[in-house]
Design a protein around this nucleic acid. Structure first.
Length: 286
DNA sequence: ACTATATCCTGTATGC
DNA sequence: TGCATACAGGATATAG
């Protein structure tokens, strides 16, 4: 599942592959990934043709590929979206949804997405920051990210700490994997009530999230299955460094207790039952 | 205003 | 063997 480190790895690959290039042709093979374009797939194709890319940007899990004319191609990978460069004559991978050919390059950029939770859209005037995503918070890698502001937003919420970490309006970029890893590092239970957390505890969990995502980025992100690969088709190597996520029954790297898997928010949460105990009554919020 | 939940998707794994 | 069900989960619409 692409979260901040995976999306940033992809952004870097796209920067090399698209910056300065001009679109010769776009082919939408499945309508769903362009569902946010109000005028349909054919219009989407036509509107993109002839545009020149400048350097791709990212905030949280959103990517946008600015055009020299001030608009942008806004992309979210959802659960399973991939950007891949391939020779235009190469056979299409399963679930290939959109093809982009360039005037000035032999390679073709392909958007592949099995589950189609993600998608592409044209953002008018979105080159610097698409208005569609102006509502989300900064992510920890943003030069303007302010830890104190984020701590304040987190502690203002009346919810469980994992919900708050996953709330892109509190801090952007964190998904289920890195939320569980940050909670493990900070020794917090996912249901710890944010409004009972100390300032220090909030700093710790947010710092842990930033640290673990930085470490993951260094090795190309986390590839749990074939659904996350970079633009060249390569997997990331952070899976082997995960302490909690996906490690049900395996020993906690800190204390040796078997990691427990629990259902929370309609998804899996992994925690160490000893390092991350259920908070005392009154400090719990689902 | 704020928080919680249902919904969208399909390939893979598991159970009977 | 074959069919049914569970599971993966980000963002948004909607319900409360």
């Amino acid at each position: 599942m692409p979260e901040l480190p995976e999306v940033e790895s992809i952004r870097r690959g796209l920067a090399t592959g698209v910056t300065g290039r001009t679109i010769a042709r776009v082919q939408v093979l499945h309508p769903r990934p362009v569902r946010r374009h109000p005028f349909g797939p054919r219009d989407f194709e036509a509107q993109l043709t002839g545009r020149q890319f400048s350097e791709p940007r990212r905030r949280g899990k959103y990517l946008w590929l600015p055009f020299a004319d001030g608009d942008a191609l806004l992309a979210h990978l959802g659960m399973s979206g991939q950007f891949r460069f391939a020779e235009a004559t190469a056979p299409l991978a399963p679930n290939t949804r959109v093809l982009i050919d360039f005037v000035d390059a032999a390679d073709q950029l392909r958007f592949v997405d099995q589950r189609m939770f993600g998608g592409l859209a044209i953002s008018e005037g979105g080159a610097v920051l698409p208005p569609e995503i102006a509502h989300i918070a900064l992510d920890p890698f943003d030069p303007a990210y302010d830890l104190n502001d984020t701590v304040a937003r987190l502690r203002r919420k009346r919810t469980g700490v994992k919900r708050a970490l996953l709330d892109q309006q509190v801090v952007a970029g964190i998904g289920n994997i890195y939320a569980d890893e940050a909670l493990w590092r900070a020794r917090l239970h996912y249901a710890r009530a944010t409004d009972t957390m100390s300032r220090q505890s909030a700093v710790q969990v947010l710092t842990a999230a930033a640290d673990v995502m930085a470490a993951a980025l260094e090795v190309g992100g986390t590839s749990f299955d074939s659904l996350y690969v970079n633009v060249d088709g390569d997997a990331g190597y952070f899976e082997r460094a995960l302490a909690a996520y996906g490690r049900e029954g395996q020993p906690c790297p800190r204390c040796g207790s078997p990691i427990r898997r629990e259902s929370f928010m309609n998804r899996s949460s992994f925690r160490c039952p000893r390092c991350q105990r259920l908070p005392r009554a009154g400090h719990v919020r689902a």
